[in-house]
Nucleic acid binder design. Structure first.
Lengths: 222, 222
DNA sequence: GGGCGGGTGGTACCGGGGTACTACGACCCG
DNA sequence: CGGGTCGTAGTACCCCGGTACCACCCGCCC
């Protein structure tokens, strides 16, 4: 038996969900909420297996409510529902920790399958959204593990120059680089000058950008 | 009617798929292939709506075959199947341009639903994989614009100062920034100075790094 | 040996970047 | 009204970064 909390500001919509979910033996609606704040409160109180969450609501919206419910760590999974397939909602919901994202025009059996999957710890995405998500994903991932088709400008650097470029990418000044590699500052200047010339950067700022774009420098999000 | 090309090195597996797909009126298997090279050739020849592609095959594997079929641009969608839920396969397949990824233990009706979705231009992911994909996605995206758990230094910036920081992140000089925003260079210097002070950067180079680390600047790998 | 590329140094110069400080209009709020 | 924030703008000053040019050493290879 899967317990469900239905969150939607439209009473009629909640009624529809309740009818559907209570009509099958495997799910049971244990509570309803009309807005985000109530959803957070009831989720903490009822500890449902799944929270069926509408995105657009007055007051605290579904995204923020999702974030808080997930942060509470009560093992409740959140399945987000929306009328429109607006991308920003999708991304925001996923960042908020939602386990799934479906459109409201989902067929009943698909919704039930979605709830089943989410309750089991899996995740679901509406097929229409999955395509865009995959495109976005493919766009994000490639720079991480390519390795073969690297920039010829990068290949033209000597070992030492690459080290210098990495140091530039860390934001070090010439004197700091000199200190780190035990070199004269004039030597560092020579190296930096050659690096800039080889990669076609007019100054070390664009060299930093080059380093980030080519994976020589990596975010460490502090 | 959806035409399907079945690609698998196991004859018995192909037979199973053919029986299933030909048993319903909406799909028809128009061809089979036993390895990647044959798959690429037959896809070009038969122009199926959907290619059901096994990942593990002798010779050219399903990933490479997928890449070539997608690159051919014949509008064939590739639905990748694998026995194991190995992540690297998933990511590689998605990068290769696959429209879907399902496990071989999928229930027949889910496979049919998947083929239907892919033929319609949507995408599908096995629920068990979707969860991991979403986690990965959430890991990749958050720096883009979280809103809650973001750096207080970033929050302390005014709207204008954030714009300036983004411009700095693009590698623009003060005069370029001035030109872009139609400001006096002295004004830009004032803004830049305040930005550096607020985020605790000693010069614009470290501001560039800050921008990248906090998602205000994005790699564009060129 | 001589040439060559890479790494290491130096000097000299100049311009952009950063700092310090000041100032004023617009706007909001108590 | 006064006070605060924000955006705008200016002047003056100094220093780091970038460039140009040169020089030496080392290892390698023709």
């Amino acid at each position: 038996m899967t317990t469900v909390l239905v969150v939607d500001d439209q009473p009629l919509q909640r009624y529809g969900f309740r009818m559907l979910l209570d009509s099958v033996p495997e799910t049971e609606v244990v509570g309803e909420a009309a807005h985000g704040a109530e959803a957070v409160r009831k989720a903490a109180e009822l500890r449902p297996d799944v929270v069926l969450m509408d995105v657009r609501m007055p007051g605290m919206d579904g995204i923020e409510a999702t974030r808080r419910i997930v942060a509470a760590g009560d093992r409740s999974r959140v399945l987000v529902l929306t009328t429109f397939d607006i991308d920003e909602y999708v991304y925001a919901a996923l960042r908020a920790g939602a386990s799934g994202f479906l459109l409201k025009d989902v067929r009943p059996e698909e919704l039930l399958a979605g709830i089943r999957a989410v309750a089991a710890g899996d995740a679901v995405i509406a097929p229409a959204l999955t395509r865009r998500l995959l495109q976005e994903f493919a766009r994000l991932v490639p720079p991480a593990g390519d390795g073969s088709a690297q920039d010829p400008r990068l290949a033209s650097l000597t070992e030492r120059e690459r080290e210098i470029l990495v140091a530039i990418g860390k934001g070090w000044s010439n004197s700091e680089i000199a200190g780190h590699f035990v070199l004269a500052e004039s030597t560092v200047k020579t190296h930096v000058g050659r690096v800039l010339s080889k990669i076609g950067a007019r100054d070390r700022i664009q060299a930093v950008i080059f380093a980030y774009d080519h994976g020589l420098a990596r975010p460490h999000a502090g």
